[in-house]
């Protein structure tokens, strides 16, 4: 269809619209996206690879990267498993309040991340609605790695759910019925028939969640306490070092996070095609 569309001729002779629109696209994208990204790499390597390596291997920097990866990993595991469960329940069963639940689950997309962090503080903080009951027992969720995971879960939950749910919606119900008539239990049907059809969506959901969680700033700065070497994630480290005037240190981590995103998105594109091919 698209091939036919581009073959329609609107002009005689040279068509200037094509080169013009492509040039415009590149000229707009360059200063908006490509140049900022390029400048990270240009600046980060300008004073030599040695100083870049030193900045990167500073204990606090390594810790921040590790913390980001670990907290994002657990948030991803939770969101994929629970996103799958939520999508399954909300597709299979029709009940009163189902649509309200779908809206609620998707709500964090629209909530500013700082608001999300603040809300978590008000709930789980030492004087929070629930936190005040935990505090006397010595359970402190806020200003720990757990708080970062909670914030990541909150902010990124709609991502995995949003990718998995549409696949459930379009899945042919007779596949599951066929499996049942052939002798499968509900679990066997889910495992052998439903889940394989969701492989692509699960992988996309996981990678999107992870990419988003690794970069999360607004909510984590509020709930983590931003303590260097204890609760400081990579984005918080960048912010802190920049504020301290240590631009090189901030830049080294920025490069790692940027490369990380490139990697995730490459995997996302390649693996999805591969998983969806039959």
């Amino acid at each position: 269809m698209s091939a036919n569309l581009s073959n329609i001729r609107h002009t005689h002779g040279l068509d200037v619209v094509k080169p013009l629109s492509i040039t415009t696209l590149i000229l707009v994208m360059m200063p908006l996206v490509l140049l900022p990204l390029a400048s990270i790499f240009i600046f980060g390597t300008s004073s030599g690879l040695r100083s870049f390596w030193n900045a990167l291997t500073a204990p606090e920097a390594v810790f921040a990267l590790q913390l980001s990866i670990v907290t994002s990993f657990w948030a991803t595991v939770f969101n994929v498993v629970f996103g799958l469960f939520a999508a399954y329940v909300l597709t299979k069963y029709n009940f009163w309040g189902r649509n309200a639940l779908i809206v609620t689950i998707s709500l964090p997309t629209a909530i500013p991340t700082a608001v999300a962090g603040f809300a978590l503080l008000l709930l789980w903080g030492p004087y929070g609605i629930l936190g005040r009951f935990l505090d006397p027992h010595g359970i402190h969720l806020m200003f720990t790695a757990a708080a970062i995971i909670l914030a990541n879960i909150f902010v990124t939950f709609p991502l995995a759910f949003g990718v998995i749910k549409p696949v459930f919606d379009t899945m042919n119900q007779s596949l599951e019925e066929a499996s049942a008539t052939m002798g499968a239990t509900r679990w066997q049907t889910f495992w052998h028939v439903t889940l394989p059809s969701l492989r692509g969506a699960i992988l996309s959901g996981a990678l999107l969640t992870f990419a988003r969680a690794v970069g999360e700033f607004g909510s984590t700065i509020l709930v983590s306490g931003n303590l260097a070497g204890r609760t400081q994630t990579a984005p918080l480290y960048i912010f802190a070092k920049f504020n301290e005037g240590q631009v090189e240190a901030a830049n080294a981590i920025a490069i790692v996070l940027a490369l990380f995103s490139f990697l995730i998105f490459s995997v996302l594109f390649l693996a999805r095609d591969w998983l969806e091919a039959e």
Partner: peptide
């Protein structure tokens, strides 16, 4: 009995073949 315990073979209108197998 549930469907899985009946041992009937159903040929669905759209065949319902498992796409990933």
């Amino acid at each position: 009995l549930p469907a899985r315990a009946r041992g009937v073979g159903v040929i669905f209108q759209n065949y319902a073949l498992f796409p990933k197998m």
